[in-house]
């Protein structure tokens, strides 16, 4: 970690983005009281969490990236076991109902599906009725239905006035869900802000994706055009002034005799921002 400085507002959904190995999980673990930072400070209200990590463990709810429980314990027993560690708790029945685990109440953990395991992990994270909930990649490996289900749960947590801190690899998820974002890489925060704000600041323009019978090469001079990239057979034009560039592009195609077979425009997404910030080189 290298000088991470984050402020998380109460009552919001805060997303931590970054490639594998960026330091997201390590950051969460330090806040959760699982790992001691070498230097620096973590405060929660008036509490110094570096000096008293027990406060974090008592008051926060945690779903780890690999939340594993005893395989041969039943769902309700697992929730009860974790409830027994806290002073203030929600009832197992409430949590089972809320996360639609009623049918699986008496099932062993080993017999749960991926989505059910994830719901159990989030249910256990809520067992102490926490003010702050940490979800480390809550939707990794889930099917689209289960993902939407987790999103709904996360929004409900915010509606109840809880603060949610989550990490994710899915940019659409971060864009749809998070109020605040921080993009991390190599143990540093590269940028932070609201999703829309980040996009407008980092990728203010729009993209024009052009498909043509022959690849568009050579010098293309169009008003507002900033950058030309090739993605397979498609040419992607990045522009600051979509309308002017589009008109000029049609004109140019006619003049040059290059028949366009496809044209699509889109505004920048969080994924564009993410790739711009963290680069395209592969991570482990």
């Amino acid at each position: 970690m290298d000088g991470v400085d984050l402020g998380i507002e109460p009552g919001c959904i805060f997303g931590l983005l970054g490639p594998n190995g960026a330091g997201k999980t390590t950051t969460l673990e330090m806040i959760e009281g699982l790992r001691r930072p070498d230097s620096g400070s973590i405060t929660y209200g008036d509490h110094d969490l570096v000096r008293s990590p027990a406060v974090a463990r008592e008051r926060f709810g945690v779903q780890l990236q690999t939340s594993a429980f005893f395989e041969l314990l039943r769902v309700d027993e697992t929730i009860d076991l974790f409830a027994s560690f806290y002073r203030h708790t929600l009832s197992a029945e409430t949590l089972i109902e809320r996360f639609e685990l009623g049918e699986k109440r008496k099932a062993y953990v080993q017999n749960l599906s991926g989505g059910q395991r994830q719901r159990l992990a989030v249910a256990v994270a809520l067992v102490n009725d926490p003010e702050v909930v940490f979800l480390d990649e809550p939707t990794a490996g889930l099917d689209p239905q289960a993902r939407r289900n987790v999103w709904d749960s996360v929004r409900q947590l915010r509606a109840e006035g809880r603060t949610v801190v989550l990490t994710t690899h899915y940019m659409d998820e971060a864009e749809a869900l998070c109020d605040q974002l921080a993009v991390m890489d190599h143990g540093r925060v590269l940028d932070e802000g609201q999703p829309q704000e980040l996009i407008e600041r980092r990728q203010p323009g729009a993209f024009i994706e052009v498909a043509a019978e022959v690849p568009i090469t050579g010098d293309l001079r169009l008003p507002g055009l900033e950058r030309v990239t090739h993605e397979g057979p498609k040419t992607v034009l990045m522009t600051q002034r979509l309308d002017e560039t589009l008109g000029a592009l049609a004109e140019w195609a006619k003049q040059e005799g290059v028949p366009l077979t496809g044209l699509a425009t889109r505004t920048a997404t969080l994924e564009d921002v993410f790739l711009q910030l963290t680069g395209r080189s592969l991570r482990d």
Binding site: L34, R57, E58, V62, Q65, S67, A68, F69, F85
Partner: peptide, 16 residues
């Protein structure tokens, strides 16, 4: 096994 699967970490994240 619990170390490997993350069972231990989950317990460590509680007041236990």
């Amino acid at each position: 096994r619990w170390k490997e699967k993350g069972v231990l970490r989950r317990f460590l994240a509680t007041p236990l």
